[in-house]
């Protein structure tokens, strides 16, 4: 479904991502692990089209999308939840969701159905649908950005650190939702600091270090073979 080959991303003279390759099959959940600064979020933003690749290629459902802009990527079926949990703080929850369905705004019936489904999945959002998104708690904002991303009916979902800075109970809830989404057949790329939880839901995992893939394999292989203290503490 999603294939990344020899991808390289630069910020000026700095090579943040130095030739990585990864792939996710239809319905698969892959996770990208690694310390801060390993290049995970840069990889995600580049796949999403918000950063330009300086080398390598990205293919989505067999089509080359290496140089597509972010708005094109959404139309091709890829939705992104960024690490910075970017709700539009002045817009209401409803308006945020509405923008999530921007590319299918003429399909009123379908959008209304999806909206109901999302609000059923995240009942907290239903209660606050008329509130500005900036007034939501961190956990609610995370639910909102996931729901908003789902409103475009993506084939592939990029999830960057969905548990960042959230209370353990909320983290459990979020991962439960990720499980639900996965079972619905969605292809998911997950970046996570919470390794145990990530490996728990993932089919396969990639470990990134200093802009390169240091290890890859099934979730079980990776959790058995990788010394995560070394990966995260730079040992």
């Amino acid at each position: 479904m999603l294939e990344v080959a020899d991808l390289e991303v630069r910020y000026g003279a700095i090579r943040a991502v130095r030739g990585i390759s990864l792939a996710a099959k239809r319905g698969e959940l892959i996770t990208l692990l690694g310390a801060n600064g390993a290049g995970k979020s840069t990889t995600m933003m580049c796949i999403a089209g918000a950063l330009k690749a300086s080398a390598g290629s990205i293919r989505l459902a067999g089509e080359d999308v290496t140089s597509a802009g972010p708005e094109t990527m959404v139309r091709k079926g890829l939705a992104t939840v960024t690490e910075t949990r970017d709700v539009f703080p002045d817009l209401t929850v409803s308006e945020n969701l509405m923008l999530g369905s921007y590319i299918r705004r003429h399909d009123r019936v379908g959008v209304a159905e999806d909206r109901e489904r999302m609000l059923a999945l995240f009942p907290r959002l239903a209660e606050r649908s008329a509130q500005p998104a900036g007034t939501l708690s961190g956990g609610e904002q995370q639910m909102l950005v996931i729901a908003r991303a789902m409103m475009s009916r993506p084939k592939v979902l990029l999830l960057d650190e969905p548990s960042l800075g959230l209370a353990p109970a909320i983290v459990d809830q979020i991962f439960e939702m990720i499980g639900v989404l996965k079972r619905s057949g969605l292809t998911i790329v997950l970046v996570e600091q919470n390794i145990a939880k990530a490996l728990d839901v993932a089919d396969r995992a990639y470990v990134m270090r200093l802009g390169r893939i240091a290890a890859s394999g099934t979730a079980d292989e990776i959790s058995a073979a990788t010394d995560f203290n070394a990966v995260y503490l730079g040992g």
């Binding site: 999403a48 089209g49 918000a50 802009g69 972010p70 708005e71 990527m73 959404v74 139309r75 939705a79 992104t80 960024t82 970017d86 539009f88 703080p89 002045d90 923008l99 999530g100 921007y102 590319i103 908003r148 475009s152």
Partner: peptide, 13 residues
């Protein structure tokens, strides 16, 4: 508020 995020939802710049 956030041009990049709006584009990532499909709003054409």
């Amino acid at each position: 508020t956030n041009f990049t995020m709006a584009r990532m939802l499909g709003v054409p710049a």
